[in-house]
Design a protein around this nucleic acid. Sequence first.
DNA 1: TTACTTAGTGTAGAATATACACCTTATATT
DNA 2: AATATAAGGTGTATATTCTACACTAAGTAA
Lengths: 231, 231
Amino acid sequence: METLLPKFDSVFSIDCVIFGFDDGELKILLIERNKEPFKDWWALPGYIVEQNESIDHAAERILYELTGLRDIYMDQFYTFGDVNRHPQGRVITVAYYAMIRLNGSKELKPVSNYASKAVWISVNDHPKLAFDHEKIFSRGFEKIRNKISYQPIAFELLPEKFTLTQLQQLYEVILSKKLDKRNFRKKMLNYGILKELDEKQKGVSYRAAKLYKFDKKKYSKLFQKELTFGK
Amino acid sequence: METLLPKFDSVFSIDCVIFGFDDGELKILLIERNKEPFKDWWALPGYIVEQNESIDHAAERILYELTGLRDIYMDQFYTFGDVNRHPQGRVITVAYYAMIRLNGSKELKPVSNYASKAVWISVNDHPKLAFDHEKIFSRGFEKIRNKISYQPIAFELLPEKFTLTQLQQLYEVILSKKLDKRNFRKKMLNYGILKELDEKQKGVSYRAAKLYKFDKKKYSKLFQKELTFGK
DNA sequence: TTACTTAGTGTAGAATATACACCTTATATT
DNA sequence: AATATAAGGTGTATATTCTACACTAAGTAA
């Protein structure tokens, strides 16, 4: 174990709150640190922004290194800049969230040099986190909870083909409350951004549900109109 | 990697989009730079974050240095981290917005070392800005436009006592559209966050309007309920 | 065939949003 | 005093959206 705390100037880092949905549960990707400080603690995946990369690029890189996934929608949500948030010096971190499809089990890549492992852990049952990562996580969760209320971002978390019940379950875990089935379906179908497929769920031991696809074109038409106060 | 975090020649800065409302116009506070790069250009007020201050503190400090105002509500809205956004090196900037009351003319303090003057300029008619400040400004404007649709933040911009017409004008300039007088009043009064005063406007050459005050207590009760999707 | 489990559907009432025009009141002018 | 001017202030009918609520249909497993 190292004891000497090095001195350094200000550093930028990125931390990622990466959400996945599987088996009715909302999960986040956590790593186990293999370095001081907070060695052996769980933490959000994150790393230093390199000198010649944009912060968006850094976020994508970190996601890629951990999951092998590219071209995932990521959004910056807050920057944490308290003086003492990192015990070794001044580190300001820009937090991003991402939402990715976990089709069954999505294997995680062996992780580079700063983590011994990376796992998907249920948001409702996650361990204590290093640094101020609990704060970052909560804020990220809050962010998607708010966002889902006015933009159906939830599709990012579902497989390409999904049932309305799966969609509703996802809303329910993000919002932490039960929704009415009929009202939910009415509202979703009314948006006109779902395409009904000629296909049904397979491998279930009860009546199979219709599958739907998300219609990206209609989505952008609908939701790029800005929010309005009304006349 | 060892415990030593890499040392980069990176700098954090804060940039502020400071809104004011006066005489029916929405304004922002701009400075004229007296240093290279972008000497003599207009820019958003901003400065380097010091080693031992939080980013929130830095934002407040910058606002104070320019306006002499403290305890103003400021909110971080986005962090800009493109590699080449600053011609002299890597500068990542955290952008904040603030809204302040301009009662008639609010005099600005003589500005410290990085600006020759600071002035209020109408948002609809502002000069070209240095760095990527146009992008920062637009994003900040967008932010308050969205926010005002679900939280009546506009009160920050008005004098303590105001008329409903003033409030409506402010909404109109932020949203860039005309609103219906009766519907606007109905909605605002329904929120229950306005206190009608026993006082009228003075110094106008027509029928004076009733003055209202913003009721902070009722506001927090009402708007701390989070946004919901409904049942 | 029966039991089980989830899929799928409609309607009525409440609340909210929208469209729309005229009289009132205070001041300034003659 | 009378008149002109300019903004203040108000109500109602219609459309739209939100909410609450319960049963039948379809497929699978025993």
